[in-house]
Amino acid sequence: MTPADLLQRITIRPEQCGGRPCIRGMRIRVIDVLELLAAGESQAQILEDYPYLESEDIAACLLYAARRLNHPNVAA
């Protein structure tokens, strides 16, 4: 799966979750998955706890976050 394919799994709709990025139009936010990973949950455990998620969804969350953070910060 290409990076572009992964990023298509991330949806942003103003009427859903306050316009926050979600996975495939579901009400699970990118931040929810990232926080689970940061808390030490394994990908396998996340997929077990959320059976409607796919491993590509987790990869999409990580790629989305990486892309959002990859911008220059200019000091004034």
Rank of each mutant, 00 (worst) to 15 (best):
A59M: 01
E35V: 03
Y64L: 06
H71C: 07
R67N: 14
V74W: 07
L69E: 11
E54A: 05
A38V: 02
A4N: 05
A60H: 09
R20Q: 15
I23T: 02
P3M: 04
Q8F: 05
G19S: 07
R24K: 10
A38N: 05
R13D: 04
A44E: 15
A38S: 14
R67Q: 15
P72M: 14
E48H: 09
E54N: 09
C61I: 09
A59G: 02
G25W: 08
Y50D: 01
N70K: 11
I23F: 02
G19C: 12
L63V: 05
A44S: 12
L7V: 06
G18M: 06
R29Q: 12
T11I: 05
E41S: 14
E54M: 13
V33E: 00
I31N: 03
A39C: 13
I23W: 01
V30E: 00
E41A: 13
L53D: 02
A75I: 13
Q43M: 11
T11A: 06
E15Q: 08
Y64C: 14
A66N: 02
E54T: 10
Q8L: 13
T11Y: 09
I46C: 09
Y50P: 01
V30P: 05
R24F: 06
R24D: 08
L36I: 02
Y50T: 03
I10R: 12
L34Y: 01
R9W: 04
C22G: 05
L47H: 03
I23Q: 00
D32C: 07
I23D: 00
M26A: 11
D49F: 02
A38I: 04
I46H: 01
R9T: 10
R29V: 02
M26Y: 14
L7T: 03
I10T: 10
S55L: 14
P21H: 01
A39L: 07
L63C: 08
R20V: 04
L62R: 15
E48G: 01
A4W: 01
L69T: 07
R20W: 06
R29W: 00
A65G: 02
A4I: 00
A38C: 08
G19R: 03
R68L: 09
A75V: 14
I46P: 00
E15G: 02
R67P: 02
V74E: 10
